[in-house]
Amino acid sequence: MNGESREGLALFGGVLGVPPKALKSPLPASRERGDTGGERTSDHMQRQLVAGRPDAWMRLEFNPIPTCPGCQEPTATRAVLDVLEEMGMEGEAILVPGVGCHSLIPFMLDLDHVMSAHGRPPDLASAIKRVLGRGAADRALPLVFTLQGDGDCIAIGAGSLVNAAARSENITVLMLNNVNYGTTGGQMSPTTPLGHATSTTPGGRTPDYGYPVRVPEMLATFQGVAYAARGAVNTPANYQKTRAYIKKAFQTQMAGRGLSMVEVLCSCPPDWHMTPLNSLKWIEAHIIPQFPLGEFKGP
């Protein structure tokens, strides 16, 4: 992917079947944060940007983001980008996505990334951190983080995750937990809560299929894990807390204290067979009780 350009991203139009033509975005093509843009409203007021697309989010001029309506993975990604911007670390950040719905997100981010095989991002991230973070004089320490789904992280990738924790790798693992396999159509994953119906547990998950895995709690038992937390983005308050967790995780990594991990609960309305708004209620009522929010191991 040499010389990748923004124009190339219009190619997603081919994927989504939308003709790339004159749909004009009302947003200015480029702007600076806090820039008034010279635009004045009629009553001599000026506009100041409060919250927009994060700068690292590349514009897809002709298309929406290729996720389902109400999917919160881009929301979780926004929290990550906000933190990167706050820390001024966008230039040193290397993102390692796995395979799942979130695999598409890095293509839209203006960050260096290496896509991994299903479940293996901790392996790649370990190697990248050790190769680039050798204390060479000509570069700052890289900020290496993975972006994984729940299936990627703890089903197919459990071995990689556990052993990265055992080796106390200085990386950050971000797990977007939508409690099922979203990409393949909503099958049971190890994090599916009891009672949650999926296409492979049509009557709802029962203890016969085991119990949901609580990853931050599990990782907190490792001596080599420095930070483990679980957040959600279903309300503005939870969003802000999650953002704080991610920031702490990144700071833990930059301080070289060991592996840091943040799980983010995300909604998946189509595979839960719910409207987006009902899915937020479902998170509040059925998922958070089985996956308590908070920090489980901290600096």
């Binding site: 479940g119 703890i154 089903a155 197919i156 990738g157 459990a158 071995g159 990689s160 556990v162 052993n163 055992a166 190890p190 203890p207 016969d208 299929y209 085991g210 119990y211 949901p212 895995v213």
Partner: peptide, 16 residues
């Protein structure tokens, strides 16, 4: 717990 960590963790998750 090295090569077989994935198998072990998921057997525990399934409450085998």
């Amino acid at each position: 717990i090295a090569i077989g960590a994935g198998a072990l963790i998921n057997a525990a998750a399934r409450a085998e």
